[in-house]
Design a protein around this nucleic acid. Structure first.
Lengths: 153, 153
DNA sequence: TTTCTTTTGGCATTTAATGCTTTTGTTTGA
DNA sequence: TCAAACAAAAGCATTAAATGCCAAAAGAAA
C-alpha cells in the first residue's frame, strides 16, 4: 500500500494525539472531513495503523517495575522456538518481545508490581525447559518512553 | 489519585481500542455517558492516561529496523548524565530510553530506515564525549509488541 | 435519621461521524 | 489540444457522540 504525503501528515498528527477527532485532523491537513476520514479508515484497514493505545502511568496502575530480560535457549529447534514464543505471548506481564542479534536469543520487556511479583514471573520462565539462561536488567529510571516515530517529512 | 474499579475497567477497555467513543465505553462499564466522560477526563487530567498513540506498522512507514542499544558512560557526573540524557531526548530515532541495572548504564530502543541510517545515529552518539561504549543488538523478529498492560481485575 | 458530599442520570445543545452524490482535478489517448 | 475515463475531494443530509448543566440518587458522616 502506498502512503502519500497527506497520509503521513495524518499519521504525524495522530502521533501527537491519537484521539483527535477526524474533524480536527481534517482541518490540520487542509481537507474536508469526508476524504480525511476515508484516508484514516484506509490507514486502519490496510494495517498501517494497527490500533490505538492509551499511554498509562505504570506507577499509578500498580506496575511500577519494568525489567528488560535477556533469554537464551538451549537450542533453536522448532519445538523450542515456538514453545518459548507461544509461552511469551501468553504471559501478560511481557509487553514486548523480540529475537535479537548478540549473545542472547530474546529480549523481553516485562512489567511487574514489585520484586515478589517479578520473581514469580522469572520462576515461571525458568520452568520452561527450553530456557537455558535468564538475565534481568531492571529499569531504574525512564529517560524517554514511547516517543513518536520519526516520520519523514 | 485513586483509581477505582470502574476506572480500571475503563483503562482496560481503552487498552483494547484507544479510540472507542465515550458512548461505547459508557455502555461497557454500565454507566451513562456523562459520568463516564467525567471519569475519562479525570484519568487524562490526573495523568493516569498520559496520552494516546496509534500503533504504526514500522515497516510500512519506512522504519523497519529496530535496535536495542546498550550504552556505557565514562563517568556518572551530573554533566555526563544530563548531557547524555538531553542528547537522547533530542534524538528522534530513540523511541525509548531507560537507565538500567547491569553492566550497561542505558538501554535504548532505536528505530532506523536501514543500516546506513542506523550508522549515522551510532556515529552521532559516539561523538558525545561522555559515551564510553555502545553495543547494538538488532531486533530480528518481533514476537510481541506493545501488548496491553496486565491491569488487575 | 438527618445532613453533607459525591456521583450518577437526564436532557438540551453543539460537534462529529458517516454515507451518498456532485464537483473538481488529473491522466490518457486519440 | 481536446475529450474521455478515473481518482480524489467537497458538499450535504442523517445519525451518533460529546458536552455542560441541573436534578436525583447513593454513600458517608454525625
Amino acid at each position: 500500500m502506498k502512503v502519500d504525503e497527506i497520509d503521513l501528515k495524518i499519521l504525524k498528527i495522530l502521533q501527537q494525539d491519537g484521539r483527535l477527532s477526524n474533524a480536527e485532523i481534517a482541518e490540520r491537513v487542509a481537507l474536508s472531513p469526508s476524504p480525511c476520514l476515508r484516508r484514516l479508515r484506509r490507514l486502519e484497514t490496510e494495517g498501517v495503523i494497527q490500533g490505538y493505545r492509551p499511554q498509562l502511568n505504570r506507577q499509578v496502575v500498580g506496575l511500577g517495575m519494568t525489567v528488560f530480560v535477556q533469554v537464551k535457549l538451549h537450542d533453536h529447534s522448532a519445538e523450542s522456538v515456538t514453545g518459548f514464543e507461544d509461552a511469551v505471548r501468553e504471559m501478560d506481564a511481557v509487553v514486548n518481545a523480540h529475537t535479537v542479534s548478540g549473545s542472547a536469543d530474546y529480549l523481553l520487556e516485562v512489567v511487574a508490581e514489585d520484586l515478589i511479583d517479578y520473581d514469580r514471573l522469572v520462576k515461571q520462565m525458568q520452568r520452561l525447559n527450553m530456557v537455558r539462561e535468564i538475565e534481568s536488567n531492571f529499569a531504574l529510571q525512564a529517560v524517554k518512553t514511547e516517543a513518536p516515530l520519526p516520520l519523514k517529512l
